[in-house]
Nucleic acid binder design. Structure first.
Lengths: 212, 212
DNA sequence: TAGCAAACTGGCACTCAGTGGCACTTGGCA
DNA sequence: TGCCAAGTGCCACTGAGTGCCAGTTTGCTA
């Protein structure tokens, strides 16, 4: 998704509506007919948005498919300066912020997020496209940490490991969350947040796992 | 790259040669003219391979661009069963195996790997394509660990964190390695292996980094 | 409130990665 | 040596994605 800050103007609200319409049409269609069988042309017809504009709103078809999940990362990116101004273990700070970002998602987000997560599970190239946003987040975290902890050797590498752990933990949580039976209609953000917290809490010890 | 085990037959050797020719033509061309400006058609003309066969050998243009780096992961995947039969901390076992895989790369690999790594740095979609192979590796590690440590709660999640750390550490090491001045001609696998070892050794403590 | 400029839209032609189908070629093995 | 499977290249095609441009809409200021 390309950046269009929602500022309350008619313009930005109209764009947000078109985007939302596309997401709401696309994800159920992908789930029902298959990602590859549903073309961008078809989605644009149904949403009454030109294809040219589609590609102005989204970075591509995969970006559309991942919108609900990527919106969480994008929210975290938006809030990042404030988040990184806090004190405490970086992993905990980012984990809390990630949970906050999930809680900020609009009503009804869960259904689309479950559909989106399921696509990632069956299409590696969609999953891979999710990496682009996460990498942007990681780079911003690294840059901010490097500036804030200048003088601490290896701070940037540490920040990279923390982000990698956070992303992996989030991924594991989302996988568990979407795979529960009936999740399309019953999944809650509270469940997802709990799964994220549990997952991230175990990360440091996880690195000590041994083969017997 | 699609799987074509190199078994010593004429057939498999011919395929390997065609692939290698494509990689050796593509990476310098990408570096000189830009990834987007160099088309698959053009590369196939130069390598005297049909485009149809190109897409039989590679999973796509990005896969071609990442071949040197992905060959490392693929080697690790091939060796994985033997690797995971060892004892010790999983991160160390995998880290050692990763270093072994780098050492197994053919002579001259360094130059192409540096070019490949630089593409990933400037084209997020290429970087993202590298995730596909890493995710395949991760899944195999997780499956094997789950089977081997059945009864240990959370073993699969731990394995995921370990793989995430290994991949992040490798990534950091490669970035440092390729960014050294003159790396196209002077980079050595010994340097890269040392960087990987150092990077991975710091992973557990990295998760404890604090914001002041 | 009107006018202007910037932001946005859609139509259209086009490129290029990627693929199915099929006839032909090559290699491996009994 | 013959047969069959693996592999090849040609060709037509699809669909994601983009540049260009004229027209429309919106926001802002005088």
């Amino acid at each position: 998704m390309k950046t269009h800050p929602v500022t309350g103007t008619l313009r930005s609200r109209r764009i947000a509506r078109s985007r939302q319409r596309l997401v709401e049409i696309a994800l159920p269609a992908f789930a029902e007919h298959g990602y590859d069988a549903v073309t961008v042309d078809r989605l644009c017809d149904q949403a009454e948005v030109s294809k040219r504009s589609f590609f102005r709103y989204f970075d591509g078809k995969e970006d559309l498919a991942l919108t609900p999940l990527n919106d969480v990362w994008r929210t975290l990116i938006t809030d990042l300066d404030a988040v990184l101004a806090r004190s405490g273990p970086l992993l905990a700070v980012l984990g809390d912020a990630l949970v906050d970002a999930v809680e900020q998602m609009p009503p009804g987000w869960e259904r689309l997020a479950v559909l989106s997560a399921r696509l990632g599970g069956t299409h590696p190239e969609i999953d891979a496209a999710g990496v682009v946003v996460c990498e942007r987040l990681t780079q911003q975290v690294v840059d901010t940490i490097a500036a804030r902890l200048s003088g601490t050797s290896g701070a940037d590498l540490s920040a990279r490991f923390v982000c990698a752990a956070m992303i992996a933990g989030h991924r594991a949580a989302v996988d568990t969350w979407q795979s529960a039976p009936g999740a399309e209609t019953t999944a809650t953000r509270a469940e997802l947040c709990a799964l994220i917290r549990t997952s991230l809490a175990g990360a440091p010890a996880a690195l000590e796992i041994r083969l017997p």
